[in-house]
Amino acid sequence: MKRQLRLFSWLMLIIFTTSCKDQVKTDPSKVQSNFQSNHLNTSKAPDSIVRNMVQDGKGNIWMATWEGVFRYDGESFFNVTKNVSSARFFSLLEDRKGNMWFGSIGSGAYYFDGKTFQNFTTKEGLPNNEITSIFEDKAGNIWLGTNGGISLYNGKSFQNYILAENTIVEDKTGKTVPDFSRPPNEVNSIIEDKTGKYWFATRGNTYLYDGNTFTIVSHKDKPFTNVRSIIEDKKGNIWLGGNDGLWRYDSSTSLRESGGEFTNISKNFIGYIYEDKKGNIWTSSETKEGPWVLSLYYSQTFLNKIPAATELNTKDRKMLFGILEAKDGSIWFGSDGVYQYKGKTITDFKSK
């Protein structure tokens, strides 16, 4: 009898210990990705809006779409977030350690190390769950552009900045912004220029941040509003594109100097700006006639005050979004699906 009691106690101890271990391992902010099963199941190419794309260090192309985040390995498409979130995805980034960041509309940001997803929302410290832009600065910090604010993540905690009327202010109270109230406070684009200053483009104003003060970016006393994309080219020039067309800022002049530092390149509405390996500038833009086009500005024409653009026929697409040059030199762009341009032909992956 005593032997049976000892055996029973020993079994209960094993069950209790195993149960406790399971509880310790549980982390509500982490979701097992089931990535291996996704990897084995080939998905069709996305056939909804493709907002942004990046190519990782291994050559895979990642796409933020309305159907989830897709990965293309050169042969097949995989919906990586299919079993993790049903949210629409807007932005993405590969950080310097090779980890991926995905920004969703309504479900916050996801960090993916190749095996496990970690979800960051307002519960973890974000000001809002709509992540419209993601940027990694020179120090390795991650900047998340949200609806209504900007969040700086240092690997441990969030430092938040809230868009107020014609300014941005740091918030230490844990203030949150309601979801799905995007314009005019959506943060569209974030960069750090070669001088260490940050540029933030929003649906409202565009701001320059020197680490202490946020200044509204303007030209001849007119602020740049609803800027959708900002980049710094290889020469240090800043390109801004949005409601007021395409503009180039000559970095050899001071932003506070009057006149001459900004040049208007195009008056068409600009959705995205991208610099390729040769220093050429690509834009997705809406023409006065209606259809959107890919425009290519060759770097050798930049000596002209207003370089001429070569417009590529994209089959009368209603809207164009992100642009990416792959390592093989092909140009990818997002629309109602994903497309690849190889100099003469455009491949529509939905039809393949």
Rank of each mutant, 00 (worst) to 15 (best):
N79G: 04
F90W: 14
F78M: 06
R96W: 06
D95H: 05
K82Q: 14
R88D: 07
R88L: 05
F78Y: 13
Y72F: 15
N83L: 11
S86N: 09
S86H: 11
R71S: 03
S91K: 06
V84Y: 00
F70K: 05
S91Q: 09
A87T: 01
G74T: 06
S76P: 02
T81P: 15
S91V: 10
E94Y: 09
K97Q: 15
R71K: 10
F77M: 07
R88Y: 08
V80L: 07
V69P: 07
N79T: 04
S86C: 01
F70Q: 07
K82C: 06
N99W: 08
R71F: 03
E75K: 14
Y72R: 06
D73F: 03
F90Y: 15
E75V: 05
R88G: 02
S85E: 01
L92C: 05
T81I: 01
F77D: 06
L92R: 11
R88V: 04
G68A: 01
M100K: 13
F102V: 00
S85F: 09
S86P: 12
F90V: 07
A87P: 02
V84T: 09
N83F: 11
E75Q: 15
D95F: 11
E94M: 13
G68Y: 02
R96I: 10
W101M: 07
F78W: 13
G74N: 13
F90L: 12
F89Y: 11
F70Y: 14
N99S: 14
F102M: 10
G74V: 05
V69I: 08
K97M: 06
R71T: 02
D95N: 11
G98Q: 15
S86G: 06
N83H: 08
S76I: 11
N99I: 05
D95K: 04
N83V: 00
D95C: 03
E94W: 07
V69M: 14
R71D: 00
F77Q: 12
E75G: 07
N79R: 14
R88N: 14
S91T: 11
F78G: 00
R71V: 08
M100W: 08
L93S: 01
F90M: 11
V80N: 03
M100F: 08
S85Y: 03
S91M: 14
D73H: 09
S86L: 09
K82P: 03
F78I: 08
R96T: 12
D73Q: 07
R96L: 06
G74C: 06
W101V: 03
R96C: 01
V69G: 00
G98K: 12
F70M: 02
Y72G: 00
K97G: 00
F89L: 13
F89D: 00
T81D: 03
G98N: 13
S86E: 05
L93F: 15
N83Y: 13
S91I: 12
D73S: 05
W101F: 13
F70A: 00
M100G: 00
E75P: 02
G68I: 09
D73V: 02
L92T: 01
V69A: 05
E94I: 15
D73A: 02
L92H: 04
G98F: 04
